[in-house]
Design a protein around this nucleic acid. Structure first.
Lengths: 219, 219
DNA sequence: ATTACATTCAATTATTCGCTTGAATGATAT
DNA sequence: ATATCATTCAAGCGAATAATTGAATGTAAT
């Protein structure tokens, strides 16, 4: 019994790690970090079948990473706590720090430009307080409506090119989206710069902002 | 390319999580957290075949969680950085907080007795400074020799019953071993108490002590 | 009640994983 | 060189996993 208790415990811990061991499930978790979602809505976002998404969600639930509640004919899933986001953050840090592959992808796709360096949450607060910057949320409207940084304006990436005039008033644009690896903000910044507009990216997304206790608006 | 970059990245991240998704590998990592080890020595400790251990180590290496160096005819493996220990710590916290199963195992095996509550690193420092407690390392001698808390004495669990006289001088015993779920310290405390000796457990092990920047002795 | 819709279940298939076995490689010592 | 020891490789097998499909469940609206 002496050694098997630890193994039994590690068996449980490994289930949690296994649940994180799938790109699709990490994607699901990133989306849930934005807020509650029904199975179908989530399935569409992450581009999986409904049945498959449901199965992934059940696995995540068994691992204690997500929780659910019934809401009319929907079943709404959410992250089971703040520590889940923290766990993901450190997982990503470790991967970023120790894996050459990750570094390569980041360099090739995300940081092609040297001047693409993101700004921190504190910098953003300072610059908006001083009226130097506009905060731009480039996520789809429904996610913005559910919750967003206080003071941010919403132009989904898909509409950005059309609506670019709404922005060009000389102030710097700071774009953000779902998290540190969400591509929407990267693309928005690249696009704005091509048009000659000064733009940078917030180094992480809404969930991290909220987790830091910084102000969000909802509804 | 837009969406596939994130998926590509998440694919890499998921490899790291997958590497943690095995009780045996978590066990291996716990042992490596004590210090460098050769494949064979490690295999013996975690009770796996050498070939199998080697394979697990290679997988962990590909995931960036361990590193290795050649040392004569040995290949010594070690954790690739402090963040690995931190990642494991949060993984365990999340599991402990969100999984009823884990809670059950902890209660049934680890915390049967209400008064088995562990003491913190700071408390240990205070009590030893004031001469109120003896720190007891119950790991095997070779692990103790490699590194241990400054001032600790070593009696491996297997020898504790025989050598119990060395301890019984009225001061409280504080036992520790490899980590928060290492069973050696639990059993040591249970045994000492049965013999009427005042004993408690340090809430975590040597690696966490070292990671906190607290003093260790080596050699 | 019946219909519609969201979600889950059950059965299936292709793939990956964990471990074993036995051979191959690499370094050291004689 | 040869022998020895630590480690890794390669092949193989059974178990677990990911995704698809179609049917079943449960809730809400008519």
């Amino acid at each position: 019994m002496s050694t098997s208790a630890k193994i039994e415990l590690y068996e449980e811990f490994s289930q949690v790690a296994k649940a994180l061991g799938s790109a699709h499930r990490l994607d699901i978790l990133e989306h849930l970090a934005q807020g509650e979602r029904g199975v179908d809505a989530l399935a569409e976002r992450v581009k999986l079948s409904t049945a498959n998404t449901s199965q992934h969600l059940q696995l995540l639930k068994r691992a204690g990473l997500v929780a659910s509640r019934r809401d009319g004919k929907f079943v709404r899933y959410r992250l089971s706590g703040d520590n889940v986001l923290k766990l993901m953050g450190i997982l990503f840090d470790v991967a970023e720090q120790n894996l050459a592959e990750v570094d390569k992808v980041l360099r090739n796709y995300f940081y092609q430009r040297d001047d693409m360096e993101p700004i921190s949450q504190i910098e953003l607060l300072e610059r908006t307080r001083d009226g130097l910057a506009i905060v731009l949320d480039v996520r789809p409207s429904d996610e913005f409506t559910a919750s967003h940084l206080t003071g941010a304006i919403n132009i989904p990436l898909a509409e950005l090119e059309k609506r670019i005039l709404e922005l060009d008033n000389g102030r710097e644009i700071i774009a953000y989206c779902r998290g540190p690896y969400c591509v929407l903000a990267f693309e928005a910044v690249a696009m704005l710069r091509k048009k000659g507009i000064k733009a940078r990216r917030l180094e992480d997304g809404l969930p991290e902002w909220r987790a830091a206790g910084l102000p969000v608006e909802t509804g």
